[in-house]
Amino acid sequence: MTTLEGAVVLVVGATGGLGSRIANQLEGKGAIVARSSRSGGHDLRTPSVIREVLEGTTAQHGRLDGLVVASGVVAFGAVTDLEPATVDELFAVNTTSAIQLIAQSRPYLAASARESREPFVVTLSGVVAEAPVAGLAAYSASKAALAAFVVAAGREYRRAGIRIIDARPGHTGTALSEHPIAGEAPRFGAALDPDLVAARIVTAIVDGEKDLPSTAF
């Protein structure tokens, strides 16, 4: 059981549909939440900005006990219509920046573990990491790459007392699909309630779960 009361948690993508809800629910559990977003001036595709955000969080709050990576972009359309810039943007935001965040946060989270806390990282690769979708090929690939990284990194981080949880919910009713960087969203089926998805993720943090496959939502 992980105690969130007084835990310092950095939520990246904190203005997004899921990121904002996770941040609010963490605060409801007593966590001290530091919020980061591109709209707030943090372009985490730049490694130096990642370092500044992590250092700023620890300077303000004294430590880092958790990291939630909820930032992301989506693109729709056939593979034959993909522009190189679209692929670059998908991987820069969904994969590379997430990997850099996790890698650069390790020293801070390891320090938290040494102080007998239970540090954690949460990523949101989504159901497309399990079942890639036609019309979302590059987006699926960017999320599957993140999920693969998390599986391997999680084994390394466990040795330092850091838990990494990858959440893979199905299509969730946020505004992400309304603002793609390319293409137009297809007609999806019924969407998951984002409040319930966020609550399930926070429950997994508290209960010490190590993975949240699509079947968990």
Rank of each mutant, 00 (worst) to 15 (best):
M1R: 13
E5T: 15
A7T: 01
V11R: 09
A14I: 02
R21H: 08
Q25G: 12
G28I: 03
G30S: 04
A31Q: 01
V33D: 06
S39Q: 12
T46F: 05
P47Y: 01
L54W: 02
E55F: 13
S71A: 11
A75P: 00
A78D: 15
T80F: 08
E83D: 10
V87T: 06
V87S: 03
D88Q: 01
L90M: 02
A92Q: 04
V93G: 05
T95W: 09
T96W: 00
S97R: 02
Q104K: 12
R106C: 00
L109T: 01
S112F: 03
F120P: 14
S125C: 11
A131S: 15
A131W: 14
G135P: 05
A137W: 13
A138D: 03
Y139P: 00
S140F: 12
A144N: 09
A144H: 11
V150E: 08
V151G: 12
A160E: 11
G161M: 01
I164E: 10
A167N: 13
H171V: 02
L176P: 01
S177L: 04
S177A: 12
H179S: 13
P180F: 06
A185R: 08
G189P: 00
L192S: 11
D193L: 09
L196N: 14
A198C: 12
R200M: 14
R200S: 15
R200H: 14
T203A: 15
A204E: 13
I205S: 10
G208I: 01
D211I: 10
